[in-house]
Design a protein around this nucleic acid. Structure first.
Lengths: 309, 309
DNA sequence: GATTGCGTTTGTCGTGGACAAAAAATACAC
DNA sequence: GTGTATTTTTTGTCCACGACAAACGCAATC
């Protein structure tokens, strides 16, 4: 440890924002309303958060992401927080958990990265790209997300998992040289969506079908999606929304984009935030699950028979 | 958030912060001090930035990253900004510009993605991973950045470039099965750094040297970097800072991380934000350019001869 | 079961003053 | 001329606390 480990490390409000993802405004308003956090102050009145309050804020953030409400947990004592974590842990026991995940899930930790990479690679070779994504990767990703929520994984473990999967999927996708088939599909996410795995899995499902896929990665502004669609003469725009994305915002964004795109361009949306939300989304093909991607593709091809000659 | 596309789009202060990287505080204080930006207001007094002011802020941001000072450019007229951009354009004409870039640069646009991917792949095969990164990719990435600053590329073009490079590099890195050599290096970026290309290029330089590289991707909180370093028994922590990252913040963060890591763990920092900043960074090995990565590696190996037996 | 309406909760935005770190400008020594 | 202190200006971040709209939970209703 460092030489100062016997003292309490302190953090500025900017450092806490960086490490917890809670905005400065939120930190100040919690202090005002709930009395926590209660940082010390320096000579100039600036907040100095001690280490233990930072740790507690990170736990609160995790519970918040898990659906808890601030009023209940921000002012809660350490014991109450521990109880809530326990409750989460027990409730997530799934009756028919797929057993093949358990093998790979245990490799999702920092000192078993090599085994994880090898296991994923082996599964990909055995199953082929599409079955690998549907049967192995998607369930495993869900398991990882839940384990993280329960505090069984640290941030680094989740990052490492994402990196390994990216290396594998991008290699597999890149190996299938650019197809020129139809439809021409543009894949991306909106600026507030940072998760790339859903996008990559969708691409992995589509590329083997002879589709011409162009991915812009994450965080493309609406106006640029529109411009790119027209410039690239795409037939389909496909967006991915993780379950962390606010559903309301996803619906608004999709309707706005739908209105700004020509009618002949199809708009597909997939991921947790739009799951089972077909109703409010006229003109948007909601893709429910990865296998539905293939159904959407077949629908499009049935509706757009290739030009003779 | 913007509105209908046929009218003049307007953006909230949060949207402008997201799209420009300028903090809300900075945007408000510029308005107070320099009279720009001068957003409209909605019924509730909230700022509504029109599209043209957002574009101008983006340009200002790029000039700021290029070394200009706010007093000179924030209040400057459109003509003065155009003059400065012209000055940049002419000064960036490098006497011995590598000519192979020009070929690839022209493929960095939406409808030539296939050619770009093929050209990059060919260059990689011809040059090998390390020379490809140093001689082709890094100059090309710089060219793309400059072209974007000059407004010659749209957002989608830059995203597409990043995606193609990621597909190629991750495939190449993943193909070299996890080495178990020394040192054990942990690669990542801090939470405010979203650019992954610098990290990938560093990894591409190191992996062929038989180093054991573990990348956590972007946006790892300081505390998690520290925890991961200890849990994974790493010898080196390597961070990447793009030139868009505020230098002062990079220095602060690095010193904070340095203080929290054991002395026997080396801390390397590379990228535009820390270029030529050795002075204030005691205990941090500033890596100036990709080739310096290999020098840093050799330094480490000289200082840590492998245990006999 | 799905929608609608209504309090409550909650994060973001507003203002303007203050301050410290960085950069520029100046003064000074060699 | 070149290098090093010292002052001055510039610049981004932080503070407080009020305001408000969107999101949410819950109940009533179709």
């Amino acid at each position: 440890m460092n030489t100062l480990s016997h003292e309490q490390a302190v953090f500025s409000i900017a450092a806490v924002e960086r490490d917890t993802g809670l905005s400065k405004d939120t930190l100040r308003v919690w202090e005002r309303r709930y009395g926590f956090p209660a940082p010390a102050r320096n000579a100039n009145g600036e907040r100095l958060y001690p280490q233990d309050q930072l740790d507690r804020l990170r736990l609160i953030r995790r519970l918040l992401d898990g659906g808890q409400r601030p009023a209940r947990i921000v002012a809660a004592s350490v014991e109450e927080l521990a109880d809530l974590v326990d409750a989460l842990r027990s409730e997530s026991v799934d009756p028919q958990a797929p057993e093949h995940d358990a093998t790979l899930l245990q490799f999702v930790c920092l000192h078993r990265a090599t085994e994880l990479a090898a296991g994923l690679r082996r599964a990909l070779m055995k199953q082929g790209l599409q079955r690998f994504v549907v049967d192995t990767l998607a369930p495993l990703a869900a398991e990882v997300g839940e384990a993280w929520m329960r505090g069984e994984l640290v941030v680094a473990d989740e990052h490492l998992f994402t990196e390994q999967v990216q290396n594998l999927l991008r290699g597999a996708i890149g190996a299938q040289a650019g197809s020129s088939g139809r439809p021409r599909i543009l894949l991306t996410t909106l600026p507030d969506e940072l998760h790339v795995l859903g996008l990559l899995m969708a691409e992995a499902m589509l590329v083997p079908e002879g589709v011409s896929c162009t991915s812009l990665g994450t965080r493309t502004p609406l106006a640029d999606i529109r411009a790119a669609t027209l410039a690239g003469a795409f037939d389909v725009v496909a967006l991915s929304f993780s379950s962390a994305y606010p559903t309301r915002q996803a619906v608004d964004d999709l309707l706005e984009l739908r209105a700004s795109l020509p009618a002949h361009v199809a708009l597909w949306a997939g991921g947790g935030a739009v799951h089972n939300r077909h109703k409010r989304l006229d003109g948007v093909r909601v893709v429910d699950g990865l296998e539905d991607t293939l159904i959407a593709l077949h629908e499009w091809r049935d509706a757009h028979p290739s030009h003779p000659g």
